[in-house]
């Protein structure tokens, strides 16, 4: 190389710069394709999206939900406690594009599926503050007004190569965008049976640590308003969930219902609140002053 080489030769400099850029590109962007989405990543129970779910996913993208919600749970203690089992590569092989996101203005949604009953989502999407009082999420009631186009969904499924039957497409007739969105949200993170695996088991005898204590009841009232009222009513009169009369459940039964949840019936586990707070809620429900 002469001593007057690239500093004065723009085309040569351009080529050298390209090569320089490509080294890191090949190592960190191209090579990982040999590791990712291979047999090794494969998870038997993970299935492609149904036509309705895929339609919902496209709406999630259209509305830019990924600007405020992530879809990946990191293997960190607090995060797994808050959201559920950490995310695995094999769970995302049908995600084109990925929707992991970068900001949690709202909570992570990777494990949302099955957390709440459908009805919770229908109400929440129309009026987020009805379920989460201090939420700043925009209202998406207009999704109820638009029907999804079965032909467009069919075309999308063909491009993605996901299996479907003509019946699946026929059933899309009359479905709203809201139906699709809720179906998609309920699919999230359900590719592995983590809810069953993570289910809390209570060992030993349960003893109410502060029976009927006024301070516990007062604390429980606040916790109830924040965590329970959306589904069970501000006056415990019941809405999406059943009404909560006193003396229906014993303290122990109530604790177990709240702490463990009834996953199949749409009652989430509140173990992440910790036993103290759950006992406070139990004392509020069973021993509050009733008019």
């Amino acid at each position: 190389m002469s001593s007057h080489a690239w500093e004065k030769k723009p085309v040569l400099l351009l080529i050298l710069a390209t090569v320089t850029i490509l080294v890191g590109t090949i190592f960190t962007m191209v090579l990982p394709f040999a590791w990712v989405n291979t047999e090794h990543d494969r998870i038997e129970t993970v299935s492609p999206y149904s036509p309705l779910e895929q339609a919902g996913r496209d709406l999630y993208i259209r509305e830019g939900c990924n600007n405020c919600h992530t879809q990946t749970v990191r293997p960190l203690v607090a995060e797994v406690l808050r959201y559920g089992d950490y995310s695995k590569s094999g769970e995302f092989i049908y995600d084109r594009p990925h929707l992991w996101g970068s900001r949690r203005t709202g909570p992570d949604l990777a494990r949302l599926g099955g957390k709440y009953p459908d009805e919770w989502h229908y109400q929440h999407m129309v009026a987020p503050t009805s379920m989460i009082p201090k939420s700043n999420m925009p209202a998406y009631g207009f999704l109820n007004d638009n029907l999804i186009d079965p032909d467009a969904v069919k075309k999308a499924m063909d491009v993605l190569g996901f299996p479907y039957s003509s019946n699946d497409i026929a059933q899309l007739e009359g479905k709203t965008e809201m139906d699709a969105m809720v179906a998609y949200l309920q699919k999230l993170g359900t590719g592995i049976p983590w809810r069953k695996a993570a289910e809390v088991e209570i060992i030993g005898e349960l003893v109410n640590p502060f029976p009927k204590e006024p301070t516990a009841i007062a604390a429980g009232e606040l916790l109830y308003a924040e965590n329970c009222a959306a589904c069970h009513g501000e006056e415990l009169e019941g809405q999406i969930g059943p009404e909560l009369d006193q003396d229906v459940y014993s303290d122990d039964e109530l604790f177990e219902l709240i702490y463990v949840g009834v996953t199949d019936a749409g009652m989430p586990s509140f173990a992440s609140l910790g036993s103290t707070k759950v006992w406070q809620i139990v004392n509020f429900i069973n021993y509050r002053e009733t008019p």
Binding site: T25, T28, V36, F92, Y94, P97, V159
Partner: peptide, 15 residues
């Protein structure tokens, strides 16, 4: 639809 799926798509995107 992206030509890449899931983890690959994420890695290409952030590259």
């Amino acid at each position: 639809y992206s030509a890449y799926a899931g983890t690959n798509d994420a890695n290409v995107q952030w590259w």
